[in-house]
């Protein structure tokens, strides 16, 4: 699978960009949190795309954002 870079993304329309990022992020998030992966991915896709690209490159950064999203989700549902 070709690497998803800023230049590849820039060629796609904005809505498509989030779709592409979501398709890449979802399996990584699913590995961390299978039951909430869809909602977490949905939350993270609201973030700026430069940060989303960083998440694809840095598992530590992704994990920190996933943890953040889960905390927000739990607070919201409480």
């Amino acid at each position: 699978q070709e690497a998803l870079t800023a230049s590849v993304l820039a060629d796609a329309p904005p809505q498509e960009q989030k779709q592409m990022l979501g398709e890449r992020l979802f399996p990584l998030i699913q590995a961390m949190n299978p039951s909430l992966a869809g909602k977490i991915t949905g939350m993270l896709l609201e973030i700026d795309k430069s940060e989303l690209l960083h998440m694809l490159e840095s598992p530590e950064f992704l994990r920190s954002k996933v943890d953040e999203a889960v905390a927000v989700l739990w607070a919201y549902q409480a």
Binding site: K39, T41, G42
Partner: peptide, 22 residues
């Protein structure tokens, strides 16, 4: 219901509509 509408859930292979108001 409005309670279940957030957050939008991403599903692989399904076009992402996100939170944009279209």
């Amino acid at each position: 219901s409005s309670h279940a509408s957030w957050p939008p859930e991403f599903q692989p292979g399904v076009p992402w509509k996100g939170i944009q108001n279209i």
